[in-house]
Design a protein around this nucleic acid. Structure first.
Lengths: 360, 360
DNA sequence: TTGTAAGCGTTATCAT
DNA sequence: ATGATAACGCTTACAA
């Protein structure tokens, strides 16, 4: 019984109607008499036909019912970032009117390693972004650096919306007031009297290793640059240290180095909550109390592992709303309307991890 | 310039070759002379052709390059469960040889509410699972209860692998030694002298509310039943309390009730780490020390929020490996081989949350 | 190495 | 309300 699968034509024949009529019964795109419907459905049942082949339908309709979510970083790290997960929630919610699925797509790799043994003219294996049957895409975790994925999508004329990034004037952006928000935290620290402040940033370039950097190092990652600018508006000369990822462990490593120097800061402005949590751990390791000996601020407003004893002083970003807005933008674009860019505002949450500058 | 998009035929014509030759240049499925390749690529460039339309290609090839991941619960909750996220990591890794994308699919809703105002013969809107162009599917978070999604996929003859669930003899299963593992934790507690032990379980039925249950209540959820059986092998008469989800908050609520009774247990066996963490919080609330006054064990071996002071005594499950195995199974099935079921083993990690029974 | 031909399974359009 | 027809854009035997 491993015969050829039944097609809509088979069903139509069995039901004694035309293929187009059967199609209409399944799609509901035109009226059909109750009797016809019954017969078609019965025939389908009898033949084990489960409905139109999605591949054929999407070719014909020109729509696949799939929205791609392209991650600038690795999928792995995306899953581990609570902010990204919250955004995904929002995206799923935002596109739900489309009844579309979300397709997780890794970023286009800049250059696929050519298969060994193939001659130099070898065909490039098409990447997921190139070959995925998506109706639209949401870009997440991209900097302003020209990313290959973006070029591919533009060439394919796939409607795109980008979250926290710049994909050119045509592409709707979902933004955060990163700079202004970060500035508020910095001002708060200054008001508390802090002068020796160190800034712990997200990566400044996709490729760069962790470490201190200076004004001559170009900051290519949008989010990093914006938050950095906000902090530097208040502390223009603060030492800056770049992490390579946003995690507690990374914050711990960075924190150890930041706190080890001879001229230890009285406050650390971390660009994410996870990094901040790591810095707090590092402080604990050196026997420093937070906030008595060291103030630490974060960014994101997510729940953080093992920070029970503290409530982080941080900027709370509306991560779910960001996703929802991106989803909504996709929906409008697919409806032929054009979608506006949106900028969301972070709220400053005063917790227990920042206090007055220690005396003396 | 919003003309019709160029097709491979246009490119072929422009390059002065046949469509099939152009196709071959893009797919690499047959040799083409360097000169031909050059001409075709140049023509494509000139026409702004970005490669074969994925919808058309997948119709013709009968493959979409997409693997569905179907979540038994809501997508939202799936994103918030650390075990699920770890598994997703593994799945992505496991299917990577396919260069396929992962499509997130919500479970088929048992019965879509018919649109108001439509006559009773209204067409059901096809669900995501029915209409998604997937080559295979991984089922996550399903019980043994017959789930509609599974029926749909079977009818569609989509190759399926199920993680922690039973989808019938034909479907490869990725399993955990839930029962044996849980029994180890229970034995450990018994060796420590515990006699008054309460079991805090995952939901026993998809629909059920939280609360105490007894031997007469059917446990319909596989994982719950297996872990329960393991604990009951050691403590057959232990009181049993079902949570409605796996979260710290839920564990806290359950924990309060469990610890409130007149005959307070000396140990709680929780079916997940998050629930265990909640119980520990509840214990702290009543001024009970863990493990001096109350022993608590978990299950999963994930990092838990706010459990900094403790290291949970728990069963560590290889969540990533589970996903990887599921991905690998999909790869074999798609290659025409059949995939074997796999059972993974949990390791018992002795932490600081279980100790000797307190002296009377 | 390249071209010819025949679909893949569906749905939109238009006529009846 | 139903049917005939013509695409949708591509790939793969097979032949040359």
């Amino acid at each position: 019984m491993s015969e050829r699968r039944a097609t809509i034509t088979d069903v139509a024949r069995e039901a004694g109607v035309s293929a187009s009529t059967a199609s209409v019964v399944f799609s509901g795109n035109a009226p059909a008499s109750a009797e016809t419907r019954r017969r078609v459905l019965a025939a389908a049942e009898a033949l084990g036909y489960t409905g139109p082949d999605p591949r054929a339908a999407s070719l014909r309709r020109g729509r696949s019912g799939i929205v791609g979510v392209v991650f600038g970083g690795s999928l792995r790290s995306a899953f581990h970032d609570p902010v990204t997960i919250a955004m995904m929630d929002g995206i799923a919610e935002g596109v739900s009117p489309l009844r579309a699925g979300l397709l997780l797509l890794p970023d286009e790799t800049s250059s696929a390693a050519p298969a060994a043994g193939t001659d130099s003219g070898a065909i490039e294996v098409p990447s997921a972004v190139t070959a995925a049957p998506i109706d639209a895409a949401v870009l997440v975790g991209f900097g302003q650096t020209r990313q290959p994925s973006l070029d591919v999508l533009r060439a394919r004329r796939v409607p795109v919306v980008i979250i926290e990034g710049d994909a050119g004037p045509e592409i709707p952006r979902i933004e955060l007031d990163n700079s202004a928000a970060q500035q508020r935290a910095a001002s708060y620290l200054r008001d508390l009297g802090h002068e020796r402040v160190t800034l712990l940033t997200l990566p400044i370039r996709p490729s760069r290793a962790r470490g201190w950097f200076g004004p001559r190092d170009a900051v290519e990652v949008d989010v990093t640059a914006a938050r950095l600018a906000g902090a530097q508006a208040v502390y223009p000369d603060a030492p800056t240290y770049a992490a390579v990822t946003s995690s507690i462990d990374e914050g711990l490593i960075a924190g150890r180095e930041i706190l080890a120097g001879p001229d230890r800061p009285t406050a650390v402005i971390a660009q994410t909550d996870l990094l901040a949590a790591g810095v707090i751990r590092a402080a604990e390791e050196c026997g420093l109390r937070v906030p008595e000996d060291l103030s630490v601020t974060g960014f994101d407003g997510v729940e953080v592992d093992g920070l029970d004893a503290y409530e982080l002083t941080t900027l709370v970003q509306p991560a779910v709303e960001k996703g929802r807005a991106a989803g909504a933008a996709v929906v409008s674009m697919l409806a032929g309307e054009d979608a506006a860019s949106v900028t969301f505002t972070c709220s400053f949450r005063i917790g227990t991890t920042a206090g007055p500058v220690p005396r003396g």
